[in-house]
Amino acid sequence: MSNRAKHRGGRRHHPNVSLASVARDQALSLAPDSPVLAMFKQAAIQLNDRQDRHERLVKLSRDITIESKRIIFLLHSAITKESIEKTVQEAKERLNKLVKGPLKHIGLELEKCPAYLHLRAVTAGFQEYVEAWTLCSLMETKQIISYREVQEELQYIIMTPVEGQDDPKHRTVTTLLPQNEYMLGISDLTGELMRRAINSISSGDSEECVFSGQVVRDLYTGFLGLFGICKELARKMGTTRSNVLKVESAVYALRVRGGEAPATLLLPPPQPHDWEQTNHSDDEGFYGIN
């Protein structure tokens, strides 16, 4: 019997060697001043710095989202025409605080790194801020603030003192707002206009209901021409179409059946003191809708 036949069915025993053990042995064999070890230490520092920056941006975006939702809730509380001017002015002051606060810090955080690298960390805050700003401008001037106007407000002049010089050094920092985020915020605006149109019916303001409905239809028509350029925008088209159908149903009921009911049967607007005495939650019920 040959040796080949003798060992044909036998098992070969290999030492228990894993990739981790080989890497550990190689790392222990490296000298403390090895350039390879220094390269990996530098990579670890950069990854930790990137993760810390991402966490700070997530917190800033969360603060922007919460405050923007509160501003939207404030704008919806303005039911009568007399209270709209005061409410819009207060909303603009709170929006300016967002521009000079969290949005400015986002620009400083992303000053020396690619802005799109951390876009997923700030996308929710950007969209909610655009939604609040556009709703405020629409209630004030009946026009939606443009992308260029929003981007111009996110430019800051930073003054840095220079040692040995009296005049500080000036530099411009811009918080980049991608155009896709602006369009996604406009898409969310259709839901707020739908709510405003329905709420205006209960207060007897038929003109506001028709105006909000027309804006929602115009926005949906414009979005149809942009279908396919943004995956997130395509996902929101179903919600936008649903908002159009709800507004059209409300306007239809107001036009066809509204004339059958006298104005005295419409629900009168609540008094300001009754609204202020009511305890409202910070959660406006918008989570999961947009």
Rank of each mutant, 00 (worst) to 15 (best):
M1G: 12
M1Y: 13
N3L: 12
K6I: 12
K6N: 07
H7V: 09
R8F: 15
R8I: 12
G9D: 13
G10V: 02
G10Y: 00
R11Q: 12
R12D: 02
V17T: 11
S21N: 05
V22W: 06
V22K: 03
R24I: 10
Q26S: 03
A27G: 01
S29V: 00
L30S: 00
P32S: 10
P32C: 09
D33H: 08
A38Y: 01
A43Q: 15
L47D: 08
L47I: 04
R50T: 06
R53V: 07
V58K: 13
R62A: 15
D63M: 11
D63W: 01
S68N: 10
R70Q: 14
F73Q: 09
F73P: 00
L74Q: 11
A78S: 11
S83W: 03
E85G: 08
K86F: 12
A91Y: 08
E93W: 01
L98S: 05
L98R: 11
P102G: 03
P102S: 05
P102E: 04
L110G: 01
E111W: 01
K112F: 15
C113R: 13
P114L: 09
A115Q: 06
Y116V: 03
H118N: 14
A121S: 15
Q127D: 06
Q127L: 04
E128F: 07
Y129P: 00
A132K: 04
L135H: 10
L135I: 03
C136Q: 05
C136Y: 01
S137E: 11
L138D: 06
L138V: 02
L138M: 14
L138H: 10
M139R: 14
T141Y: 14
K142Y: 13
Y147E: 07
Y147C: 05
Y147S: 05
R148Y: 14
E152M: 09
Q155S: 06
I157Q: 14
I158Q: 05
I158C: 04
M159P: 00
P161L: 06
G164E: 04
Q165W: 02
Q165M: 13
D166A: 11
V173A: 02
N180Y: 10
E181N: 09
M183D: 08
G185Q: 02
I186M: 15
I186N: 11
T190K: 05
T190Y: 07
T190E: 03
L193C: 11
R195F: 02
R195H: 01
R196F: 14
N199T: 09
I201F: 08
G204Y: 07
D205G: 02
E208D: 08
E208P: 00
V215M: 14
T221S: 13
T221L: 12
T221E: 10
L224E: 13
F227A: 11
G228E: 01
K231H: 13
K231F: 15
K231Q: 13
K231S: 15
E232I: 00
A234S: 15
R235G: 05
R235H: 14
M237Q: 10
M237S: 12
T239F: 05
T240Q: 13
T240N: 15
K246E: 07
E248F: 05
A250G: 03
V251F: 06
R255A: 06
R257C: 03
E260A: 10
L266K: 11
P269A: 14
P269E: 07
H273E: 10
H273A: 08
W275D: 04
E276F: 07
T278M: 11
T278R: 14
D282H: 15
D282F: 15
